[in-house]
Simulated scan of single mutants.
Amino acid sequence: MSFTVINTFTLKDPADAEAFEARFLTHVEWMRSRPGFLAHQAVRAADRPEVYVNLGWWERPEDFQAVLASDTFKEHAEEFHRIVDVDADPSMGLMRLDGAAGGRGDALSVDFLTVGGDRDAFVAAWRAYATAAAELEGFVAADLAASLFARPGGFTALTRWRSAGAADAARLLPAYAAVAELAEVRTVPAAHLAGDRAPFAPAGA
């Protein structure tokens, strides 16, 4: 399983979008050179453009903790906090599924899910949904992570599609309805901002 850092950034002033994106892209270039960094995906919410979400995958929690302790990270964080509010959700990757066609996929959805009951049943249902979605035209990739402590019963799913229509079609699947029966779902349709989708060992696949 891969350690996954999920950060939600909300602009304090929507006019600062360009400044934030420039700082963020500089930051992730530095992060990519850190030991243990695997990949990341940053998106901007389509319906709330003041909101950004970044998922970062690391080999071990210790690798990310070492980055947090560095002076460079602290300097970057100080700059960010001037222009955005940050919600951090350290998580553990549970599943990664790539479509046969591969590629980046510019239509993305981030699902924030909250499970009040059987977590194993939910994970099984989400795996069944992702497997069914992978058969649809336009599917690129899917990732599922479980919150470690910030969101009790919380999961985050990232799905990548070649079009928004493909993502909408997936939500009509019976397997998606089964997921929605087991979890409260908040879906954030989003657009690609930055990310390398570097290969790494599948977690729990």
Rank of each mutant, 00 (worst) to 15 (best):
S2W: 01
F3E: 08
V5N: 10
V5K: 12
I6V: 15
N7S: 07
T10E: 14
D13F: 03
A17G: 06
E18P: 08
F20I: 04
A22G: 11
A22H: 15
V28S: 04
W30H: 11
W30K: 08
R32A: 10
S33K: 15
S33M: 14
P35E: 04
P35I: 07
Q41E: 14
V43Q: 01
R44P: 02
D47H: 13
D47T: 13
R48A: 14
P49Y: 02
P49S: 09
E50L: 02
G56D: 01
P61K: 03
P61T: 05
E62D: 12
D63N: 12
A66T: 00
V67D: 01
L68C: 01
L68H: 00
A69N: 07
D71R: 11
T72V: 15
H76Q: 11
E79H: 03
H81R: 14
D85Y: 00
P90N: 05
G93Q: 11
R96Y: 01
R96H: 14
R96S: 14
A100N: 09
A101Q: 15
A101D: 13
R104T: 09
A107M: 02
V110D: 03
D111W: 04
D111R: 03
L113T: 01
T114C: 08
V115T: 05
G117E: 09
R119D: 13
R119H: 15
D120A: 15
A121K: 12
F122M: 09
F122G: 07
V123E: 13
V123W: 09
A124L: 10
A125K: 06
W126G: 00
R127L: 06
Y129A: 10
A132G: 06
